[in-house]
Amino acid sequence: MTRLSVEGAVCRHGLLTAVRGVSFALEAGEVLCVIGANGAGKTTLMRALAGAHPLAAGRIVLDGEDVTGLGTHARLRRGIAMSPEGRRLFPDMTVRENLMIAAENGRAGDWTLDRVLAAFDQLEPLLDRPAEKLSGGQRQAAAIGRALLANPDVLLLDEVSLGLSPAAVEGVYRALGEIKETRAMTMIVVEQDLTCALNFADRILCVTEGAVALEGRPDDFTRAEISNAYFGIHEKESADA
């Protein structure tokens, strides 16, 4: 069953076209990793999916409903939640408040505060600490937990490993792996770390200069093909090198 489909998405920042005709479809429970170099348009694509950036063309369909014209909070009600790039916790608020705002405004479902605290056990002793005083890994855990509390059908995770220590990255992906195993949630993960992306994804989507350069299962491609697509190196350039 197709959970989410993106058809010919185009996004612009003024005169710059950041996303150029991107299309893909995801089944329920599937995990897609979006990879690409800095400035490739990954974050713009994620923001467009969440409703934070308007589409200049194309459409987004969730469970058969066209949600293109809906705003961010309306899409969340339909089941799309995002953990944005940079975590973007509310610095002035405690971890508990950050989580509870999501729980209060989100949908009913299996993800409760207790379940989030079980999935990210480092959060329990930090509940009454202001978010601005968390480490990078703790912030990422809180940001993902916050998005989970909205009980989404589609979870968007932007730049999961960016700025985290290897141990923190491992911890976050371990928790995400357990969520993935349940196959209850479709995930789109923006990841610059190729190893993390290839290990975690069911499918990868490589974006170069806003357009899809490569799409498929990680096993479908050699590492060199993925690297070339990632850095926007064409076959001829690659052969010349």
């Binding site: 969440a50 961010t72 973007r88 610095p91 608020m93 705002i101 998005a147």
Partner: peptide, 23 residues
């Protein structure tokens, strides 16, 4: 709840909206 939502909007309106807050 309104106060918490208002502070969330003040800190980061886009993040608040992405959590379902009707900014």
């Amino acid at each position: 709840r309104l106060g918490a939502e208002a502070r969330a909007i003040r800190d980061d309106a886009e993040a608040a909206a992405s959590l379902g807050v009707s900014t």
